[in-house]
Amino acid sequence: MNSSSTLRTMRPVLIFALIGVIFMFTAPYVLQLFTIINLTTAIALAVLALSLALVWGYGGILCFGQVAFFGLGAYAYTISAINFGGSTWAILVAILVASAFAALLGYFMFFGRVSDVYLGVITLTVTLIFFSLIRRTSGPEYKIGNALLGGFNGITSPPLNLPWNTGSFLFPEQVFYVAMAALILCYVFCGWLVTTHFGRVCVGIRENELRAELLGYDSRLYKLGIFTIAAGIAAIGGVLFCNGVGRITPDVFNLYNAALTIIWVIVGGRGTLIGPIAATFGLFYLTSALGGQTIFNNNLVLGIILIFFVLIVPKGIAPTIIDWYEARRKPKKRGRRRGSRRRMREGADA
């Protein structure tokens, strides 16, 4: 694909990215600091949702434990930032640790030809193992370098600092800028990745693995690749998360969070990137709003929303909007569908 057609396919991605940039620079002037700090956490979760949108929506790999790489990234960041006395290299370590672990786990799953359902089971189990394991590390003997693991209390995460000055920590507002910039960059990166040869082969494997193999593509390598990349992105989310919250606890690995990630992608829509991001923000604010009242049980409402989407809007928000938009645009001319097909592909890439 040449550069001009790449740009054309990526147009919706770039438009959403631009909206993000505008939001990034206006929000701190409009919103209160408390809201901005809350938003940072939501952004971190949106990065996590984006990573699952990539690996599940495009790679077709139902990773029930995407949150494991998110949490692993947060822990790796916190532990190495404490030991290094600075955050810059710690971010890199976080991404590398999560990706390396994903590559190792993925190697056994994909080269062992584990079937789809068991993939979900294995990734979820690994997440819950992390949960149980780290919860039991409260004693003073559990430490890595200078960092005490802290069991179920977790560890206080050192805030981000300027790369050239380890003494100057970022203010919450500045962390918001970093988080928003990271989300936008990750989004554009994923949007670009799915237009590349690699990304298109991954989509092909999602559609029909045997056919991809019969064309001469080693599906195991492609799956391993997208799984590893998505883990790295989830780790970036983890770094942002422990910065937004200020600490990281083993609760990040629990079943509730693992399931919540899946819900974001189902509600937002598989096969799109912007859908799960939007759904994360929406559900995050809904949960916050519900937290302020005591009439309805929080989880009950989330459960009802999930059931509603699975039954009534099974494709999720974004694909449903795209379909509706498509249907409105060409109600009469069914014969000439060339242009609209391309728009549909573009829409699906957003």
Binding site: N208, L210, R211, E213, L215, G216, R345
Partner: peptide, 30 residues
């Protein structure tokens, strides 16, 4: 199968194996 195909062998199976969710062009391009 990908190793056999990788030698330059074109294969069509009994039950059509195509990328159902993708366009005709995308199928052939891949």
């Amino acid at each position: 199968p990908h190793e056999v195909a990788g030698l330059g062998v074109g294969i069509k199976t009994q039950v059509p194996n195509v990328f159902d969710g993708l366009s005709v062009e995308e199928n052939i391009w891949l």
